[in-house]
Design a binder for these strands. Structure first.
Lengths: 242, 242
DNA sequence: AGAAATCATTTGTCTGACATTTAAAAGTCT
DNA sequence: AGACTTTTAAATGTCAGACAAATGATTTCT
């Protein structure tokens, strides 16, 4: 682990990169303890605050974790699927909110990916996952449910569908697509959306998953996508009409 | 923007979270300048190093950028697709290398997602993207190409296919799936893989894309997945046999 | 032997200072 | 007046040293 003293980049950036490279290359393995901050500042010939800034950069990416106390220190963190989910959702949300992605583009991507999970989910979903889908459909039919709660339930339904594929890599990849859409979907919830239509489609999809009919599930998702896009275009038309 | 003095969490974590929330909620907009480090340390009643650690956490996630000098400071960064790609690839790579994900699981996820792009790509790919696919196939047929270069070309081929869908959100989501697989694919390259079979399948896929036949492209990808999994299982069988 | 007190190590935080970069302001010359 | 140079001020980057707080290990006392 070395840094280039002639580089113009900030020292904390260089140090963070050096440690990151060591982790990716396998020089530092999971749960291995890094040298203490004092030792690192000796090694890189920089002050302790500079080392700390580098370590905080790595901690922000869940690459390390720190612990105080006698046998404490910084440890290489095993990147969990859970941590990766959270990062994925945050990044996707910001990406969508900051880049004026059209609703159609986001919608297309989301449903294209979700349809990829449907056949696997129809084949493998657990009873528990199917029960979750049914429970969310039931919740969505309750009168008095707020728009925000309806959207959250919608997301939970789709999460269960995706998780049904039993492939954690797929679930991780889809996390951003499904969850980051929630704010965009909120955008159209405030209009007179017909919840019965949505829950009807959800029921069709759940039935297909229960029957193990991947093709029908894909078709149901296709109809749901069409419905969602129609709703959005109505909203946009109404807005520009005003 | 406030922090909870009674919380046991590290101050720099709390401050980073408070600023992050302000960005996500829209209180801080893209390119807006944050208060200077001195002003932030006054506001949160902490020292400047603590504020700096918080800012470095945010910078590590590309949420802010900093600039030195008179009119410098920390600015809310527009999260670009490029930055998001890079984060996605790094996270996916670490996730796969640290969690003993089976080859089958990763392979299934990758091809399931890629097949979701194929019909869109068949419909919309630009001439340039098709040319890239053809060029990579040509490169893959060159004798003397190293295994590493073959893999890189393989990735470039699939990237062109995905980008052909003309949906940046989809390209972003797929970046991790396609690029993070490269190390795993390297794992099986060192055996006597028949490149002609692979390039033959690539040609079939490119032909389908050129003809605008999404179904054929999906079928080609399915065969490629089957071939890849067969190769991998052969390798694993040979290893355990030794 | 077991509980309590002490100690050493490590991260978390603070204070204050200086270095470096950068844009704007001030000054100078033509 | 206008263009160029110099100065200045503001901001981040880096450093040094110190104390606080947490935590496991060690020692001491009962």
């Amino acid at each position: 682990m070395q840094i280039d003293p002639s580089s113009s980049a900030d020292l904390s950036v260089q140090i963070a990169q050096a440690i990151k490279d060591a982790i990716i290359s396998g020089d530092l393995i999971v749960d291995e303890r890094l040298p203490s901050e004092a030792e690192l500042s000796d090694h890189f010939r920089v002050s302790r605050p500079t080392v700390r800034e580098a370590l905080k950069r790595l901690a922000a990416q869940s690459l390390i974790r720190t612990q105080r106390g006698a046998s404490g220190g910084a440890f290489v963190n095993r990147l969990s699927f859970e941590d990766a989910y959270a990062q994925q959702v945050t990044t996707s949300t910001l990406l969508l909110s900051m880049n004026e992605v059209s609703f159609d583009t986001a919608c297309e991507a989301r449903y294209a990916l979700e349809r990829a999970c449907a056949p696997l989910s129809a084949e493998r979903r657990s009873a528990d996952q199917l029960a979750t889908m049914r429970a969310e459909i039931f919740r969505q039919g309750q009168p008095g449910l707020t728009d925000v709660a309806f959207c959250a339930s919608d997301v939970a339904f789709h999460r269960a569908l995706v998780d049904g594929a039993g492939n954690p890599v797929l679930s991780y990849q889809l996390a951003g697509a499904v969850e980051a859409m929630q704010p965009l979907m909120n955008m159209i919830t405030f209009t007179a959306r017909d919840r019965a239509v949505i829950t009807g489609l959800h029921t069709r999809i759940a039935d297909a998953i229960e029957a193990g009919d991947g093709g029908a599930a894909v078709a149901g998702l296709q109809d749901l996508e069409d419905e969602t896009r129609k709703l959005a275009s109505d909203v946009f038309a109404a807005r520009s009409g005003r």
